[in-house]
Simulated scan of single mutants.
Amino acid sequence: MIFLSLFITFFQIGLFGFGGGYGMLSLIQHEVVMNHHWMTAGDFTDIVAISQMTPGPVGINTATYAGYTALQNEGANQFLCILGSMTATFALVFPTTILMLLISRYFMKYKDNASVRLVLDSLRPAVVGLLAAATLLLMTKENFGSYSEDSVGFIFSAGLCVLTFVCIKFFKVGPMKMIGVCALLGLVFTWLTGGFCA
């Protein structure tokens, strides 16, 4: 049954998703696209984009949308799709909540313990690796297009990526402003290239 599969899948992601929401993205993508085939890579890319634009943690938002989309692609009705989103969200949050309650109780007491420090120091490279995997996961044909199919669109997408990085890193422009600027530039580009229907 898909609800049980959703629960088990997102429970495992919640349990092992070190590095926060962006660290979970590669795990979620592997499970919902490659392992269970609940959606296509294009669907997942759209879900990640929506998750980043809506309020809340990106990992939880992605789980919510992925649960809904998985049921929708199975042909379920609206009510079951909502239950799917609730199942995926609860399963993702549940192990994290339990772990944080346990850790917060003992962390301050044992944070200077050599064994605890060793475990935390050992997790840092794994977190960096998960974040790097999430970055590479988003550098796909679905996000940037294909140079061989649409060279102008590909160059525009890559240019927006570089522009966003430079503005945030060196000019300290807020991410929300850059989202607005990129959305506006995307609309203008689509209008200029005839992407809108009359």
Rank of each mutant, 00 (worst) to 15 (best):
A158L: 08
A76F: 11
M34C: 05
I155G: 06
S51Y: 11
S51A: 14
I103R: 09
I82M: 00
F18S: 03
A132M: 01
L27A: 12
D112I: 04
N113A: 02
G59A: 08
M39W: 13
S26E: 11
T164K: 15
L185E: 06
K177C: 04
T164C: 15
T97G: 04
L6F: 04
P57H: 09
T64M: 12
N113I: 04
F94A: 04
F189C: 08
F90V: 12
N113T: 09
A158D: 05
G153W: 01
S85V: 04
M1N: 14
S122E: 08
G145C: 00
W38V: 00
Q72S: 11
A63G: 07
G23M: 03
I47Q: 06
D150T: 02
R117V: 01
S85Y: 11
V152D: 10
F7T: 09
S151E: 05
L102G: 01
G20I: 00
S148T: 06
V32H: 06
K172W: 07
T40G: 06
I50T: 15
M53I: 03
Q29E: 14
F156R: 09
C182K: 01
A114L: 00
G67F: 05
F171Y: 14
F7K: 11
L131T: 12
P95F: 02
V127L: 07
L160Q: 14
A49I: 02
N113E: 10
F11W: 11
M86G: 04
A63C: 05
G23D: 06
D150F: 03
G194M: 10
A133Q: 06
Y110I: 02
S146P: 01
L99I: 07
G180V: 13
C197I: 01
A70P: 04
L137K: 04
M108Q: 08
